[in-house]
Design a protein around this nucleic acid. Structure first.
Lengths: 134, 134
DNA sequence: CATTTTCTGCTACATTTGTGGCAGATGCGC
DNA sequence: GCGCATCTGCCACAAATGTAGCAGAAAATG
């Protein structure tokens, strides 16, 4: 009896850097207009209205968000869960840079000299606290 | 007194998918020619000689490998350690997709339903043992 | 040596990503 | 209803990435 969930459906499309920034706002609000996102990313970026618009457009094409016309304004909603997107991104990284093996990544984490003792302890704690639920 | 290694020098340049494939061969062999890499990636990819050549060229420009002329043939050598490249890639992922916080990634790992119990246990064990045993 | 093989240097070209402009349609304040 | 603010749809353009061809130089081969 296997306890792995095995492979579910197709991976959500990979998101680019800029697209992640937009998705953060989309997930946070649940439902956004171009302007909402623009507002949220002010300070983080220096994007023009058009830039956000284009990015949302591309996210629609990638199937990451859905668009619904409300009056003359588009309202966007997440079409993939953040968790799914994160999983896909993580698996893509593991595939390209860590032998396709999660274990290699974890090993790197704990062996990486840039990981502070404190962070390492945090990881252990998180694992113990969160990993126990059957 | 801080125990963090804090921020060392500048991150190695980000590598693209294709570039990671090439770098795998470069790290494995320690010293390669275009043809060596081409040989190694046969089966994995269907690249032309020129493709590998271009990729190595770009890796030189990115400072990821060094080139040395031996006769009329170029010999390439890693200029960044695999560990450093992995670290940079991992940090980039955390930055874009996991709130910039390693803890968020680890939390995702243990909470992700796609992570099998066995992998979860491995993770815990590796953390406890500091990754000392294979 | 004359050929054949193999390299290199340069160029090319499609796609994706980052960034944004312009013009026409639509909605809001007065 | 009119004008001003907004939105949208479509296009643009540079940099990065994926993928490779061509021509000339260098080396190997008979």
């Amino acid at each position: 009896m296997r306890d792995e969930p095995a492979c579910s459906g197709p991976e959500p499309a990979q998101l680019s850097d800029a697209e992640w920034t937009v998705m953060d706002a989309v997930w946070k609000r649940g439902e956004v207009t171009v302007r909402d996102v623009l507002t949220d990313v002010q300070g983080e970026t220096d994007w023009a209205y058009s830039t956000v618009k284009t990015l949302l457009q591309r996210l629609v094409e990638k199937g990451a968000v859905s668009r619904e016309k409300r009056g003359n304004t588009s309202v966007f909603r997440p079409a993939v869960e953040q968790k799914a997107a994160r999983g896909a991104a993580l698996r893509a990284l593991v595939r390209r840079a860590f032998d396709g093996t999660l274990g290699t990544l974890v090993h790197h984490l704990v062996a990486d000299e840039r990981l502070s003792r404190r962070e390492r302890e945090d990881l252990e704690r998180i694992l113990r606290d969160e990993g126990l639920d059957p």
